[in-house]
Design a protein around this nucleic acid. Sequence first.
DNA 1: TTGTATGCGTTATCAC
DNA 2: GTGATAACGCATACAA
Lengths: 339, 339
Amino acid sequence: MTTMQEVAKLAGVSKATVSRVLSGKGYVGKAARERVFKAIEESGYRPNLLARQLATQQSQTIGLVMTNTLYNGSYFSELLAQAAHMAEDHGRQLLLADGKHSAAQEREAIEFLLDLRCDALVIYPRFLSADELDEIVMSHRQPIMVLNRRLRKNVSHCIFADHRAASQAAVEQLIRRGHRDIAFITGAQGSPTAIERLSGYKDALAKQAIALNDALIVEGKWTPESGAEAVTQLLDNGASFSALVASNDNMATGAIKRLHDAGFALPEQVSVIGFDDIPVAPFTVPSLSSVKVPVSDMVKDTINKLLFMLDGGAFNASSAFTGELILRESVANGPFYTK
Amino acid sequence: MTTMQEVAKLAGVSKATVSRVLSGKGYVGKAARERVFKAIEESGYRPNLLARQLATQQSQTIGLVMTNTLYNGSYFSELLAQAAHMAEDHGRQLLLADGKHSAAQEREAIEFLLDLRCDALVIYPRFLSADELDEIVMSHRQPIMVLNRRLRKNVSHCIFADHRAASQAAVEQLIRRGHRDIAFITGAQGSPTAIERLSGYKDALAKQAIALNDALIVEGKWTPESGAEAVTQLLDNGASFSALVASNDNMATGAIKRLHDAGFALPEQVSVIGFDDIPVAPFTVPSLSSVKVPVSDMVKDTINKLLFMLDGGAFNASSAFTGELILRESVANGPFYTK
DNA sequence: TTGTATGCGTTATCAC
DNA sequence: GTGATAACGCATACAA
C-alpha cells in the first residue's frame, strides 16, 4: 500500500503538506496542491484510517451491538436500515458487532467496538442485565445508548418501548369487546420483551377482575412453527378461548394457520392479536390485529441523542415509546403513540 | 483511557513485557506476568485496537458491503446471520458498511472498509457493474469475494446463484403441467437479479415454443403492495393467465391476496410461484410455490474461500448455486442444488 | 527473561 | 506557505 510519505516524495513535498491538502486545513500553495493531487492520482494512494483515527482520537463511527438471534425478521431490518440512514445523514459509518448467544459474548462485542474507539455506541441488549448495562454506560467516556431496556441509573441513556403497557392495552381492547377467555402465547424464555408482554396480559386481566387461567398461557419461541405448536397444545389441553394474543406476528401467523386448519372461523370465532406488524401480514393474514413497535422512531431518537452528546450536550429524561395498535379487520383505533 | 505504558509503570515493567503477556508470545517470568495482570485489573486497561492493528498490519476483521435497500426481509437476515456465525467461528469480527443508493456510494463503502484495513471483504453488489467489480478485486491485495454477481475476469472471486436457470426451471415446471398463459411480475427496475429472473422466464417460453406475450409481463418493486398492484394491472388489461410467476415471495404474497379478493380460486385457477421462500409463507400462503436461493450456503462458501485465501490459498473455479424449487401444494421436486 | 529502540501511517505543533 | 518533529498506542527485532 502506498503511504503518505511516498506521495510526498512523488510530489516533491513533505508529509505535512500532503496531510494539509487532504484535510483542507492550513495554508498550502496552489502549485504544491496540484502536484500533490497528481501524485495521489498516479500512486492510487488511499489513506490509512487506522493511522488517522489513532492520531485524531476519533473515528467518525457509530457502533451497534445486537445479538444475531435477533437478526430475523422485519424488526431488525427496519432497525438497521434506520440506523444506517441516520449515520449516513451525519457523515458517519455504522459498525455492527454480533452479541452472539450469552452475556459474556454480548459484553465482548461491546468492548470490541469500544476498543476500536467508536465515537458512540448503540446497544440492543439481549442478555446483559439493566444493572450490568448501567455499569457499562457509566464506566466509559464514549456516549452509549441502550435500546429496548429500562436502565435504573442512566435513565437518559436508554430508549425503550413500553411493551407491558402496549400489551395491556391490546388485551383490554379485547376485553372491552366482550372477550373473557383470552389465550396467550409467550415469547422465548428469558427474553425481557417476552416477560413484559406477558406481564401486560396479566395486568389487563387483573384490572378487569378476570381470573388468570394458567391453562391459557403457553410458551412459544417467536417462530411461526412455535405459534402453531402452541395452538396445538392449547387445543389438546381442551382449552376454550375466544381470543388469542401472540407475543409476535410470526407466532400469530403460525397460530392462525393452525386454528384455521382446526376449523375455526377467523376472526369470528377467535380474535387474534400479535406484535410487530410485519409487512406481509396485511396481505396474508388480514384477520390479524397487530401492535407495532415504532422501532424506526426509537432508533432515530437514539442516534440523535448520541450525536447531541458527541457535541457536548446532555439529557435528563428518557423516552418511552408505546406501540401503535393496528386493527385491520375493523375500524382502527386512534394511534396512541407516546414519546 | 489508560494505556499500555501506564500499565507497565504500575507493574514496574516495560511496555514490551506487557505486550508480551497480552499476546502470549515470547518469554515472560511468572512474577512479572502476575504483576502485569494485577496492574491490568486495577487500571481497567483496554487495548487500543487501532494501535494494535496499525502495528500488526492486520485487523482480524471481515468487511461486508451491502446496500440498505436490500436490508428488508428474511433474505438479508439469513445472509447476515450466516456471515456473523462464520466470522465468529473463526475468531473474527464482521464489519458491515452500507452501500447506500448509487454506484459511487457503493464504491465508497468498499473503500471505507479497505481503508480500515479489513483483512478481507465480501461484497453483495447492487449498483457496481461486473467490470467495475473486477477492477476493484484486482487492484487490492486483500482477498475480495463478490456475492450474487458473475465476474468476467476474476471468476474465482465470485459466488452467485443462477437466477436465470432457476427461473427457467420454475416456468418449465408450470409448462409441463399444462400451463400456457403464464404471467410474470418482474423485480425493481435496474436490479440484475430481476433481469436474470425475467430472462429465465423468456428462456423457458422460447424453449417450449410458446409465444412471448408482453401483456403478461408487468413490473413490480419487490414489495407485497407492488405485487398486488401488478395483478390489478394485469386484470385491468384484461389479461388471462392460468399461472403467475412473481420475482419474489413478497410480491407473490401481494399478488395472491389480490387474486383471492378478485374471486380466483388458488391454486386451482391460478398457480403462483415466487422466489426466496420466506419463513411465514408456508403458514400464510400455502398455495404458493417458491424457489429458494440457498443464501446461507453461498455465504458459507464465500467466507470459507476468503479464509482460505488469507492462508495463502488460491482457487481457480467459481461456483454457481441454483435455488431449490419448493412446491408446497403437492409433491416436492428433488432439490437441484448445484455447487 | 527483560528492556531499548524503532516502525506502523497519520495528525498537529511548532519553528522557519 | 512549508518542513521537521513529536505524539498516537502498540508490536517486535535486537541487545542486554
